[in-house]
């Protein structure tokens, strides 16, 4: 411990370097597995496409598009006084009943969907893993309390809770994300993660950690959670799908206080009586509906591809 200390005593940076190298190696290996799977790549492609829309929208508004005409919320084009109007060179996806450009609405809404999805999924995943790990680790009364709440939430359909909550309070997109995250945190994924945590809890390395002097906190955060992370990530993807879908339904029912979203686009269409006239007004229904379907299935597809990395048994041999 003495002679070699001079070349290594730089605050343990060699340890962090080695960890970084390991992380990169495993990330590369996981990417190689992921890239073998066309399903996952398609999903990722769709997600990237919508991300591109999110990034392009403010750029377009600042350069090519006239903000007065193309504003997604209150834009109006004097050159096309009759609205809604079918797609044209000026409005690639047509205009909405109140005169806004549909493509601009679509791109603007994508940002909200991503904020919602990522926030809701992060809340869900942090809470399910922590709740599952705590329930499994402590057992007894704590386990019972958590799991009975979960039973209750599973029993009552999430959507009806959401409808009541958004009826009582005017929810912004961030608040909605938190509520959705909280509700799905007490959902079926907690049961799955708890069962996984139970199987990890009895491994000898947990006993070994305790003999090493590790307390409950150390064991939960250093041993249980890292081993739950892969499966938690998987459920994160699936809960994104659920969050996007719930938002669309609530907005469609007019229960959401959001300036613009895909659900609101459909809501406006329905309120003004265009929703049944699909053959003539398809451009009012199709873009928003397809976007909801595409983005939520994209996250689902990525989840499936991750599933095959996490559970090697699902991999095709």
């Amino acid at each position: 411990m003495t002679n070699s200390s001079s070349n290594r005593s730089n605050g343990g940076s060699s340890v962090w370097q080695a960890r970084w190298a390991l992380f990169r190696k495993s990330a590369a290996a996981n990417w190689a597995l992921f890239a073998e799977n066309p399903v996952g790549l398609i999903g990722l492609g769709i997600i990237l496409f919508f991300l591109l829309l999110v990034i392009l929208h403010p750029i377009l508004l600042n350069t090519v598009w006239d903000p007065n005409v193309y504003n997604p919320i209150n834009g109006f084009d004097p050159q096309s006084p009759v609205n809604p109007a079918p797609p044209s060179a000026r409005h690639l996806l047509g205009t909405a009943p109140q005169g806004q450009d549909i493509l601009s609405q679509l791109m603007f809404s994508a940002r909200n969907e991503f904020i919602l999805a990522v926030l809701a999924a992060t809340v869900t995943v942090t809470m399910t893993t922590t709740l599952g790990a705590i329930a499994a680790y402590y057992g007894g009364v704590i386990d019972n309390v958590i799991m009975r709440i979960v039973d209750l939430v599973i029993m009552v359909p999430a959507l009806s809770i959401l409808i009541v909550v958004s009826g009582l309070f005017e929810l912004s997109i961030v608040q909605l994300a938190l509520v959705i995250g909280l509700i799905s945190a007490f959902g079926a994924s907690t049961v799955v993660i708890k069962s996984q945590a139970l199987s990890i809890k009895v491994k000898p390395y947990i006993e070994a950690a305790r003999v090493a002097g590790g307390g409950d906190f150390h064991i939960i955060f250093r041993h249980l959670l890292p081993n739950l992370m892969p499966i938690a990530l998987l459920y994160m993807m699936f809960s994104v799908t659920g969050a996007i879908f719930s938002e669309a339904v609530l907005a469609f029912l007019g229960l959401l206080e959001v300036d613009m979203s895909w659900g609101i686009m459909l809501n406006t269409t329905r309120n003004l009586g265009f929703i049944l006239d699909f053959s003539n007004r398809w451009y009012l229904i199709f873009p928003a509906g397809l976007s909801i379907t595409l983005l939520s299935s994209a996250f689902y597809l990525v989840g499936r591809a991750l599933d095959e990395i996490v559970n090697p048994r699902l991999r095709q041999r």
Partner: peptide, 22 residues
């Protein structure tokens, strides 16, 4: 804890698979 340690029977299960040897 500084004075008592244990060596386990199963060398495969007594180490967290997500931790390095260090």
């Amino acid at each position: 804890r500084r004075n008592v340690q244990m060596i386990f029977q199963d060398p495969y299960e007594s180490m967290n698979p997500r931790m390095t040897i260090f």
